[in-house]
Design a protein around this nucleic acid. Structure first.
Lengths: 232, 232
DNA sequence: TTCATAATTTTGTTATAACAAAAATCATGA
DNA sequence: TCATGATTTTTGTTATAACAAAATTATGAA
């Protein structure tokens, strides 16, 4: 009774395990990062189960896992929702991102090959093009690719998965306001500086560029969130 | 707590949530940090369920959560074990600890009240006493209390829970070798330096002290682990 | 013995039903 | 209109059974 007629997207962390729990987890996660649910949207187990054509057990497990990760929040003993904008959490996650993504950057910078640099350059081209054509979803996707292409260099899997959890944490509640913050060609300069640092084999320069990128993004997101909150 | 005949009357260490899954989770976690299971020990769902007098569902959920957090590892599609010593993971977690616990320390240092300082001093006394009397379990417990008393100051809950996950991650596989590393009155000097920095309202001094503590611990743990591995 | 293979047991996963508790809805009175 | 209490519906949790797949043990041949 569970034949996944709807499009199933397999994620990176979903390693062909075939577990319905993992399928449900990746599905919800995908929806969240696409901004499919507005903040405040309720996610009852049975609704999720029905939507994904699975039983209650995998749905429940997926939801609980996302709650643990902070991508969803419990606002009552029996109600989990997509989190509302929370500037305190945004600040906190930003601080953690600076520390952890800075670490990953610095540890991996010297391992960048020419292939990686080429990949980054082409990603950056795609990003600028997407921004020009106002395809913000694509721009955000490639922006994430750009960051993680650098973070993967250090080959520290625990670190990488922790960073991924941080992206998901703010992504869930802030995604629907990324477009209005992405318009300003955010990040282009910092990305180019990072690439330059990689070519120059200068880890602290790369780290500085990435930290700048994170801080710039934080400022824009915060501003957009404040305006959004004021308008309501 | 595990000998009730029929009644599932709650247990002592059950932390108020009432969920059997949480009870199972904290129970296993407690056992792990106490070093009750040797590395390589298998944790099948049904055995855990029977041991805790719960059904398969809560046991399964607790185990999967610990796997996800890295406190347990899957070595096959149907086998999760207590992880073996892994120096690469120890290094990785140490780097993350330096970044995150350094961050927490620096952000919270200026908020230390006299009460906190007194608490730290009394904890440090307890630690030295425990070490003198070779009660290493107690020493380790209070050592953790010492660290988190400082980390709590910054009031960043996401950061705190991430740090806790890191402690659990190495704790599970390294706990049974803490005694032989704790003998050397590890940390005393660094702890005192941290307290001094708090009193002086000097955040970077506190951070330096805590980072030193983490690095010292890393070196000792690594050495002990290497000797252990060589001996086998 | 040693290795491969077959037989058997163990194990993880999932759907389901039942239950208690929470949330939503309705009814009633001021 | 609003609050409040009662009722109904919804919901999370858990134990359980069934199934398929993995792990283990037994078996046999070289």
């Amino acid at each position: 009774m569970n034949e996944n007629t709807t499009g199933e997207e397999s994620s990176v962390s979903d390693l062909q395990s075939g577990r319905l729990s993992d399928f449900a987890y990746s599905s919800i996660k995908e929806q969240l990062t696409r901004g499919a649910y507005k903040p405040g949207h309720k996610l009852p187990i049975r609704s999720v189960a029905e939507m994904l054509n699975v039983g209650a057990t995998p749905a429940r497990e997926a939801i609980n896992r996302l709650v643990f990760e902070g991508a969803l929040v419990m606002v009552g003993p029996k109600t989990v929702i997509v989190p509302h904008l929370d500037l305190a959490a945004l600040y906190e996650v930003t601080q953690m991102r600076l520390a952890l993504e800075g670490l990953a950057t610095e540890k991996g910078a010297l391992r960048a090959t020419n292939d990686v640099v080429d990949k980054l350059l082409s990603l950056q081209e795609k990003i600028t093009l997407s921004l020009d054509e106002k395809r913000y979803g694509d721009a955000l996707h490639d922006n994430k690719e750009f960051h993680f292409a650098i973070y993967r260099l250090c080959e520290m899997p625990h670190l990488l998965s922790t960073i991924e959890a941080l992206w998901l944490r703010v992504g869930a509640s802030f995604h629907d306001l990324y477009p209005e913050f992405a318009e300003a060609k955010y990040g282009v300069h910092n990305h180019l500086a990072a690439i330059e640092g990689l070519v120059d084999k200068d880890p602290s320069a790369v780290r500085a560029a990435m930290e700048n990128d994170i801080r710039d993004g934080y400022r824009r997101l915060k501003k957009a969130a404040q305006e959004r909150l004021k308008r309501q």
